Computed example of a mutant assay.
Amino acid sequence: MDTYETTAKHNLAETCSASISLNDLLTLAPKESLIDFSQKQVYGAIRGTEALRTNIANLYSPVGKISAEDVLVTNGAIQANFLSLYTNVGPGDHVICQYPTYQQLYSVPESFGAEVSLWKSEEGSGWGMDLEKLRGLVKSNTKMIILNNPQNPTGAVLRREELQAIVDIAREHDIMIHSDEVYRPLFHSLDPEQETPPSILEFGYEKVLATGSMSKAFSLAGIRLGWIASPSNEIIEACAATRHFTLISVGQIDDRVATHALSRPCVDNLLQRNVQLARQNLAALDAFVNEFSWAVEWKRPKAGTTAFIKFVNRQGKAIDDVEFCKTLQEKTGVMLVPGSRCFGGDVDFRGYVRMGYVPDNQSMVDGLKELRQFMVDEYEKLPLAH
């Protein structure tokens, strides 16, 4: 992504919901002065202002289980994840990580000296998780189970009953749960009878934390603001202590913008906008998949902003996804992410690409138009995966 995203004409690899400007933000909930230019630019509230932490807590806790004191504001979810792992995982520990997922979640604990076991999704069951496999991965030194719900890159979700079972396993073995919920609450394609999956924070287990950010569901990646939330004062205090040796605080301007974005009615309007955009663009992507069903296989995502799509030839053999992405970018300017390069390892994701489907609608329409033409003109010239 570093190589191609700034030059891509049609970036369909982006994982954020279509970004908004500060002017856009004001149209969602007008405020006379979003930024106080008279405010001295000191470090500010080290853990985040109480107003911001309260608004973050309200995302999880309509019944008041999570308060401002249970939230630590960070420089994006990437720092929230790093800070949690840096604080809680080290040599001699064993970590179980849901897979496939964002590489940080399994590579960082490994870099700290922990042993990492991948709890692998089952594509045949809609990228569902096998709880018996989880039980089989638990060891005497298992310190943490890492989840990503909704899941990147598949858009799959863990339902309440699955989350409850995971909590039960963790409680039985005194294991911490780290849940990256950065795509929450962008649940746009659940079955009509399906309950919106709860946060991991809602199950009454103390040894849990959730990370989130303003980037994915809230369209404000540019303010670089995320958080750790936990019902455990011990976890929050430990992360806060470690944080002094990483990044002191977020910028006051970022804090102020995020506070406004997560206040009501702004947050409701912003999420409504992004859910509608996700549904509109996903319908367009669904039409593309159906049109080229001989070449494209997928499990339609339930939530988030990404889909994991497999491309095959007419005999059902996987194409070389890296060459596909390179050639597609060269010929059309459409950017996708190759699955075997970005989510590989000992799992066979040859032929898979990750697509982000929540840019602005015109970008999606234009990108799919170019991709359609590529499928007609160039696709069958691509090499197969080795």
Score class of each variant (00 low, 15 high):
Val42Pro: 00
Val42Asp: 11
Tyr43Val: 07
Tyr43Ala: 09
Ala45Gln: 04
Ile46Ala: 10
Arg47Leu: 04
Arg47Trp: 01
Arg47Ala: 10
Gly48Tyr: 05
Gly48Ala: 07
Gly48Glu: 09
Gly48Met: 05
Thr49Gln: 01
Glu50Gly: 00
Ala51Cys: 00
Leu52Ile: 06
Arg53Gln: 04
Thr54Asp: 03
Asn55Ala: 15
Ile56Ala: 01
Ile56Asp: 01
Ala57Ile: 06
Asn58Gly: 02
Asn58Arg: 13
Asn58Asp: 14
Leu59Thr: 04
Gly64Glu: 07
Lys65Ser: 15
Ser67Val: 03
Glu69Trp: 00
Glu69Val: 00
Asp70Ala: 09
Val71Tyr: 07
Leu72Asn: 03
Leu72Val: 02
Val73Ser: 06
Thr74Glu: 05
Thr74His: 05
Asn75Ala: 13
Gly76Thr: 10
Gln79Thr: 05
Ala80Phe: 03
Asn81Tyr: 01
Asn81Gly: 07
Asn81Arg: 14
Asn81Leu: 09
Phe82Ile: 04
Phe82Gln: 10
Phe82Ser: 09
Phe82Trp: 05
Leu83Ser: 10
Leu83Gln: 12
Leu83Met: 12
Leu83Pro: 11
Leu83His: 08
Ser84Pro: 00
Ser84Val: 07
Ser84Phe: 12
Leu85Ser: 06
Leu85Arg: 02
Leu85Ile: 15
Tyr86Leu: 14
Tyr86Phe: 13
Asn88Cys: 07
Val89Cys: 13
Gly90Asn: 12
Gly90Trp: 08
Pro91Gly: 09
Gly92Val: 08
His94Gln: 01
His94Asn: 05
His94Arg: 00
His94Phe: 00
His94Lys: 02
Val95Tyr: 04
Val95Ser: 04
Val95His: 03
Ile96Pro: 03
Ile96Arg: 05
Cys97Trp: 00
Tyr99Trp: 12
Pro100Glu: 08
Pro100Lys: 06
Thr101Ala: 14
Thr101Asp: 13
Tyr102Trp: 11
Tyr102Ala: 12
Gln104Pro: 00
Gln104Asn: 05
Gln104Phe: 07
Tyr106Asn: 05
Tyr106Lys: 04
Tyr106His: 15
Tyr106Gly: 02
Ser107Trp: 00
Ser107Val: 09
Ser107Leu: 12
Val108Asp: 13
Val108Thr: 13
Pro109Val: 11
Pro109Lys: 10
Glu110Asp: 13
Ser111Leu: 14
Phe112Cys: 13
Phe112Tyr: 15
Gly113Ser: 03
Ala114Leu: 11
Ala114Trp: 12
Ala114Arg: 08
Glu115Tyr: 07
Val116Met: 09
Val116Ala: 06
Ser117Asn: 12
Ser117Ile: 02
Leu118Asp: 01
Leu118Ala: 06
Trp119Phe: 11
Trp119Val: 02
Lys120Asn: 10
Ser121Tyr: 06
Glu122Gln: 15
Glu123Cys: 01
Glu123Ala: 11
Glu123Met: 09
Gly124Leu: 10
Ser125His: 10
Ser125Leu: 13
Ser125Val: 12
Gly126Glu: 08
Gly126Gln: 08
